[in-house]
Simulated scan of single mutants.
Amino acid sequence: MGQGMDQRTVQGAARQRPDGMVHEGVPYREPALLARELHAPVGETLRDGGRVVAVLDEANRVALESLLGPAAADIEWRDPAEVHRVPAFTVATRWAQLARRTPHPEVRTTVIAQHMDLPGVDLAYWIRLDAALNVALATLPVTMLCPCRDDADLDLLLRSSHPALRIGGESLPTGPQRDPTELVAEYPPPPPPDLGPPAAELAVTLDGLPAVRRLVAETAPVAGLDPERTADLVLAVNEIATNSVEHGPGRGRLRLWTRGGLLAEVHDVGRMTVPFPGIVAPPASGARGRGLWLASELTDVLQVWSDTSGTTVRLLAEAG
């Protein structure tokens, strides 16, 4: 996973397109006022036959349900703790997958995603998430509404990544946006946690790729994966391991843990320069860059850490 691998980078903030993403921050002081701001865009999406998904705390959900009345039954409510139990880039990837796989792709999807206090979720998480959304959703017909209490740091949480703020029923431009690549560089993810001794490990070499696939296939059932999930993970790990030996230093190490499914790690001493690994598909004409995208699509969580000491890629396939 060295200098030759996945060199494509995402430059510049994603521009809002009429048929693409709308990304608005929604500052608010109390639930009733937030519900009033959300009422019009939610109602418009529902009337057009679009999909509305909402991630709100209890007070804000109750206020919006009260204002919408029977129409609130058409909203898909998601548990904030469940949505945000995974890394920020994974959340952005999942919203993109939801938009691409909607039963009615011809109509707009509206996602209400509140910035809130949650265990283990800090300021850097929200900044990384908003930057990743601007990349992952750039060309998709999604309206992303991000409520945030206006006693928070609005410059960092809203104005730096949202082209507009919804205030008083109007969409007000915020001015120039920060480059998403610069933002995630300023707010890197926490280092990979120590997972203790692995259940299995193996050197990764070009000649040893068949052994890598065998080890994953043999370990996956022990972790509770069914045959379909096992096949997906085998393919995903093979993509990452192949990138490591073909485009990186030529040698790495695979480690496997059986916790909540099967977690696979490929580490090597190369350096990766991709700011948003696995979030966007490479161009159809591109010869490289497909490995990370495919691995992300085939697994539940993909995480990448890369610095002067090397690159670590972790893939999680959850059981059940």
Rank of each mutant, 00 (worst) to 15 (best):
T143D: 02
H104G: 00
A131W: 07
R166I: 00
F89E: 12
R159F: 15
P191A: 15
L64T: 05
R94S: 09
A199V: 13
L123R: 15
D194P: 03
M144P: 01
P198W: 08
G168Q: 08
H162R: 11
R159V: 13
T102N: 00
E182T: 15
A199I: 05
P163F: 14
P80R: 08
E201M: 01
R166A: 00
A185V: 11
R94W: 08
R100T: 01
D79T: 14
R101F: 03
P180T: 10
D179T: 14
Q97D: 10
Y125G: 02
P191T: 14
H162Y: 09
D155F: 10
H104W: 00
H115W: 04
P163R: 12
W95V: 03
I127T: 12
Y125R: 05
A99R: 03
P189A: 15
A138V: 14
T93E: 06
A71H: 07
P188C: 12
A88M: 08
E65D: 08
R85N: 04
V184D: 10
H162V: 07
E106L: 04
M144V: 01
A185T: 12
A73K: 09
T139L: 11
P173W: 15
A92H: 09
E201L: 02
P180E: 10
D122N: 12
T93R: 12
V83D: 08
V86M: 10
E76L: 15
P191V: 14
D150A: 00
D79S: 13
P80H: 10
E65P: 00
A185N: 10
L98S: 03
D194S: 07
R128L: 06
Y187R: 07
P80E: 07
A72F: 02
T110P: 02
P189G: 05
A131V: 03
T139I: 01
W95D: 00
I127A: 12
A131L: 09
L118E: 04
T139F: 06
Y187C: 04
R94T: 11
P189C: 05
E201W: 05
P173A: 14
R101H: 06
D194T: 05
E170L: 03
A113F: 01
A113R: 02
H115Y: 00
L98M: 11
L98C: 05
L157E: 11
L154W: 10
D130W: 06
R128V: 05
L158S: 09
S160V: 06
D117C: 07
E186H: 15
R78L: 15
I167C: 00
A152T: 11
L140H: 07
I167L: 11
L140F: 08
V91Q: 11
D150V: 01
I127Q: 11
P163D: 08
A136L: 06
P176S: 09
S160M: 13
A199F: 07
T102V: 01
L183D: 06
P147Y: 04
P192S: 13
H162C: 14
A200G: 07
R108I: 00
